[in-house]
Design a protein around this nucleic acid. Structure first.
Length: 800
RNA sequence: GCAGGAGUGGCGGAAUUGGCAGACGCGCAGGCUUCAGGUGCCUGUGGUCGCAAGAUCGUGUGGGUUCAAGUCCCAUCUCCUGCACCA
């Protein structure tokens, strides 16, 4: 047979669709497997080879599971709200709905052409009102349960996109969407109280199978730290300055305090501060800086002492100066710190610059040179003197603080509450109403979905207002509670909302009464295996785990954790080894590859190219190598004969079944394909194979190259589809050879190889080795000191 | 700075977890097929020395443990990814 991909690919894609073999069954006695891939944002550019790699791992595993007899749910959908579509709408005047529909159509066709075995009967689109109705519904549940609040604070704001960004979306001080510098702006913001779930999100990690680095990244992101809150009094005023510290045991070493430039105490006591001009100037200076600039100037400390306010160290009564400095952030802890210059490098640098005392309280370093952050004996510390263990001294200090009522143990998280609104059109409307009498009121559940109004102008307002604010018919409404004239919230939800629960909707995509039917969730949840990119580990995964924990607490879902197992695919780099990007012109279009070499070749290549988790450059020549491999597979049909193959080849077939089966489970697709290549080399050397042997071969290959394998299956008279035929089994006894070739070392150097009966005793192995002429020549005239034999591995003689 | 990961031929990458380093693919060289190019097939392919048999070196670098180290330990360099004045 010849590998005529242009003919066979459309043929089998049509047959698969017609036979519905990829549709998951809701009522099944079979064990279930729920494989999930991160659904795409349907951009106008269409699919990228990165999408192919991202979906191929669970594509192969899902196909293998079907052959193993599982009822498989392998769905796909579109995360279609978002800025690129809206920006394109602003530019072209086309409605985002039309653009989205076009892009989804384009993506679907492309995915189908690659032959992915998605269940197309369960496609979801986050911008579909039947879908976002439930996104709004979950939001209202959170509102009802006190997890939604509004606050006027400094937010990360992108002046280019004109939206408020969460911390997650402004990493490194750059807007995640347009990469402009993010500025700080005072705004009213809706927050989701994700911090209330910080501990559950941490503890939940113990129960899931995520790669270690993924867990670690989430742990760092949540950033839990244990320490203490301590209240410092301000001299002469009845006012406490509250700080957070992880080292309360160094309290005797505090020689000054620092507060963030935005700290409210400054305005409160402005009349007592004698250098308000200098302070105001410094604050203005800081406000101008972006957070990025502020955190970049790590080396040089700046600040201004507050003249007129002095704090009192609560453990020794000493009066200490208070400074404002931008190295203290309002957003973490209490926005104020106690400074211990002897044992904190930042405080040390500041003290050196401003000539403040440095008092050593932990022995072991040289505080004339730098801060000492290690352990050691406590000194100059009153009742703590003589303590040598950090844990003990902290405990002792906490005890004292609580006894005297000046502080208590506490925890802090780096993770902040989730800024949950955008001033944009193309997102889920936030279902809240502002009533002059009742305040903020929820839209009643029965009025959901709260639909996006049809508008012509998608341009956001210059004052940072949503385009929805310009639509009077949308804004003006009556209060659901008191009936008074009221105004709708005009902000929309951020991009991450719709993807925070989408895996639940696949289970029951058309349910009109609930996000999904409980019995169906009990069958399908949790997601057995979720594959995606590293970039979603801290945002999407944390957000969706938060929503899921919340829904679990309400009894709406049946598992606390949504994803039992997570894997990560590595990037595909351009042929030049750089990240693919339009500007570099090194982008590979997957459809070009499908056109020229076929979908099976593309699928095989993206998994063969290297370690699945590693970033690997694209190589056009290697693609051809995979095409050549499939050509040779097609050619196997020409050498089928009735004559049984040698026992040697039979063993290799059994070994290959074993290896491909286990490699797929470990995401080692490259070696699984390599072993099939090795086997075809062995078959070619043998010159023939039986029909049964060929069936085994195409079954093993079918998850990777399903179109070709179906064609061969059909030509061999197979019933139905190879895709749903049983996965081959191997006979362990047949994977073992009668004889094994092993290396023989003399003094640790390989001097030859011998053939031994597999699993033989050491005496026999030594005898065979010594009988070997070459080995004997190396042993001649020497004393055998030691003989080592590792069964079926190696013989080593130590001779002097 | 902190956390995680990686350094193996000309290239992508293997190595049953301490047991013959370089599987498989690409590339390259030679040969066959071909008027020719391409395709296809066969052979070879880590470095150095050697006609060869073979010897010798070899997994970022330096040390160590071991009969035996890509793999374990100590030190060190480089690169990637994330976080970062987090108190």
């Amino acid at each position: 047979m010849r590998y005529e991909f242009k003919k066979i690919e459309p043929k089998w894609q049509a047959k698969w669709e017609e036979s519905k073999i990829f549709e998951a069954k809701d009522n099944s006695d079979k064990p279930k497997f729920y494989g999930l891939v991160e659904f795409p944002y349907p951009s106008g550019a269409g699919m990228h080879v990165g999408h192919i790699k991202a979906y191929s791992s669970l594509e192969v595993i899902s196909r293998k599971r079907r052959m193993e007899g599982y009822n498989v749910l392998f769905p796909i959908g579109f995360d279609a709200f978002g800025l690129p579509t809206e920006n394109y709408a602003v530019k072209t005047g086309t409605h985002p709905r039309i653009i989205t529909d076009e892009n989804i159509k384009k993506f679907s066709n492309q995915l189908k052409r690659v032959g992915f075995s998605f269940d197309w009967s369960r496609v979801i689109d986050t911008t579909d009102e039947d879908y976002y109705k439930w996104t709004q519904w979950i939001f209202l549940k959170m509102f009802e349960n006190g997890l939604v609040f509004r606050d006027r604070t400094l937010v990360n704001y992108c002046p280019h996109c004109k939206v408020v960004l969460s911390n997650e979306d402004s990493q490194g001080g750059k807007c995640d969407i347009c990469h402009s510098d993010v500025v700080q702006k005072s705004k009213d913001v809706w927050y989701l109280r994700i911090t209330q779930y910080a501990d559950k999100l941490l503890e939940g990690l113990n129960d899931v199978d995520y790669p270690e680095n993924v867990k670690q990244q989430q742990i760092n992101w949540i950033g839990k730290s244990k320490g203490a809150f301590v209240n410092f009094t301000i001299d002469g005023i009845d006012e406490k300055l509250r700080i957070y510290t992880t080292r309360p045991d160094t309290l005797f070493g505090v020689t000054f305090m620092v507060i963030a430039p935005e700290h409210p105490i400054i305005d409160k006591y402005a009349d007592r501060i004698s250098n308000m001009d200098a302070i105001t100037a410094y604050r203005t200076e800081c406000a101008k800086k972006t957070e990025f600039e502020r955190t970049q100037l790590v080396k040089d400390k700046t600040g201004v002492q507050i003249q007129g306010l002095e704090a009192v160290n609560p453990v020794n009564g000493k009066k200490i100066p208070i400074y404002i400095a931008d190295y203290v952030m309002m957003g973490y802890g209490t926005g104020a710190i106690m400074a211990v210059p002897a044992h904190d490098q930042r405080d040390y640098d500041f003290a050196k610059k401003f000539g403040i005392d440095i008092i050593e309280v932990i022995k072991g370093g040289d505080i004339a040179k730098e801060a000492y952050t290690g352990d050691g004996e406590m000194v100059n510390s009153g009742f703590l003197n003589g303590y040598t263990n950090k844990h003990d001294s902290i405990e002792r200090m906490l005890e004292e603080l609580e006894k005297q009522g000046i502080g208590e143990a506490g925890v802090q998280y780096k993770m902040k509450d989730w800024a949950f609104n955008r001033q944009r059109y193309w997102g889920e409307p936030i279902p809240l109403v502002h009533c002059p009498n009742c305040g903020v009121v929820a839209v009643p559940y029965e009025e959901l979905p709260l639909r996006l109004p049809d508008v012509k102008d998608f341009e956001p307002g210059e004052d940072g207002q949503s385009p929805l604010a310009k639509i009077d018919s949308f804004v003006n409404c009556t209060c659901p509670k008191c009936g008074a004239a009221a105004k709708r919230e005009t902000d929309t939800m951020p991009q991450w909302a719709g993807s925070s629960w989408y895996f639940l909707r696949y289970i029951d995509p058309h349910n009109e009464n609930a996000i999904a039917d409980m019995d169906k969730m009990k069958y399908w949840m949790p997601v057995d295996w979720y594959n995606g990119g590293m970039e979603h580990v801290t945002r999407h995964m944390i957000y969706s785990r938060f929503w899921h924990h919340f829904l679990y607490d309400l009894g709406i879902v049946n598992t606390p954790e949504p994803y039992a197992k997570r894997s990560i695919q590595g990037l595909i780099l351009g042929p030049d080894g750089d990240k693919m990007s339009k500007s570099k012109g090194n982008v590979v279009d997957p459809l070009d590859i499908v056109e020229e070499y076929g979908a099976d070749t593309l699928r095989t290549y993206v998994l063969f190219m290297g370690d699945y988790g590693a970033a690997t450059p694209w190589n056009d020549s290697s693609v051809k190598g995979c095409k050549k491999f499939l050509d040779r597979v097609a050619g196997l049909t020409d050498i089928v004969s009735d004559a049984p193959v040698s026992s040697e080849l039979e063993m290799k077939i059994h070994r290959t079944i074993k290896k491909v089966s286990s490699d797929i489970e470990g995401l080692k697709f490259n070696t699984a394909i390599a072993s099939l290549m090795t086997l075809i080399n062995d078959i070619t050397a043998e010159g023939h194979l039986t029909k049964e042997d060929l069936i085994i071969f195409i079954k093993l290959l079918s998850p990777f190259a399903p179109h070709l394998c179906e064609e061969i299956w059909e030509s061999l008279g197979g019933e139905g589809f190879v895709t749903v035929s049983p996965w081959p089994e191997f006979d362990e006894s047949k994977t073992v050879a009668k004889t094994t070739e092993i290396g023989v070392q003399v003094n640790g150097k390989v001097r030859g190889t011998i053939v031994i009966p597999t699993g033989c005793e050491k005496e026999e192995a030594f005898a065979i080795a010594k009988a070997d002429e070459r080995i004997a020549s190396f042993l001649e005239g020497k004393n055998l000191v030691k003989e080592i034999y590792v069964p079926n591995k190696i013989v080593n003689f130590v001779a002097k």
